[in-house]
Design a binder for these strands. Structure first.
Length: 112
DNA sequence: CCATTGACATAGT
DNA sequence: TACTATGCCAATG
C-alpha cells in the first residue's frame, strides 16, 4: 500500500474529532493517549495543518494551562474564544474557566 | 541537503 | 516562582 502516509497528524485529527461539544483537551493529553513520545509538539503542529480541515475543532485543543495559545492561528484572534463559548465553554483573558471541569481526557472518556 | 521554526511539556537551575 | 535548556517530528526556505 503506497498510502501508508498515515502520519501522526491523521491520528491526532481523529482524536480531536471525538472531542464532545462543550469539552476541551490538551496537546499533551492527546499525545499521551496516542503514545506520542514526541511530546506534544506534534499535536500542535498537526493543528497548524488542520486549517484545511473543517472537521477538526482545533479550538477545543489547548495547552496544559487551559490557555488559548493557538488563537492566533484562527481567522481572527477572537475566533477561537467565540467557538468555545458557542460550545458552552467560558473563556476569559484567553484562559478557559473551570478548565478541569470541561477537560476531556481521551484515555478516560474513550477508555484506555 | 542543512538550518530554522513551531498552536507543547518536563526537568533543572 | 521564573527562566532556561532539551526532546521530539515535520514543514519551510
Amino acid at each position: 500500500m503506497g498510502t501508508d502516509k498515515i502520519n501522526y497528524f491523521d491520528l491526532i485529527y481523529q482524536v480531536v474529532r471525538e472531542i464532545p461539544r462543550g469539552r476541551v483537551t490538551s496537546y499533551g493529553a492527546i499525545a499521551h493517549y496516542l503514545g506520542l513520545k514526541s511530546g506534544a509538539r506534534m499535536v500542535g503542529y498537526a493543528m497548524n495543518a488542520a486549517h484545511t480541515m473543517t472537521d477538526v475543532p482545533a479550538q477545543r485543543v489547548v495547552n496544559r494551562q487551559g490557555l488559548l495559545t493557538g488563537k492566533h492561528h484562527f481567522e481572527t484572534s477572537t475566533q477561537m474564544q467565540e467557538l468555545l463559548e458557542a460550545d458552552g465553554i467560558s473563556v476569559e483573558n484567553d484562559q478557559i474557566k473551570n478548565f478541569e471541569t470541561v477537560f476531556w481526557d481521551p484515555e478516560k472518556e474513550l477508555g484506555l
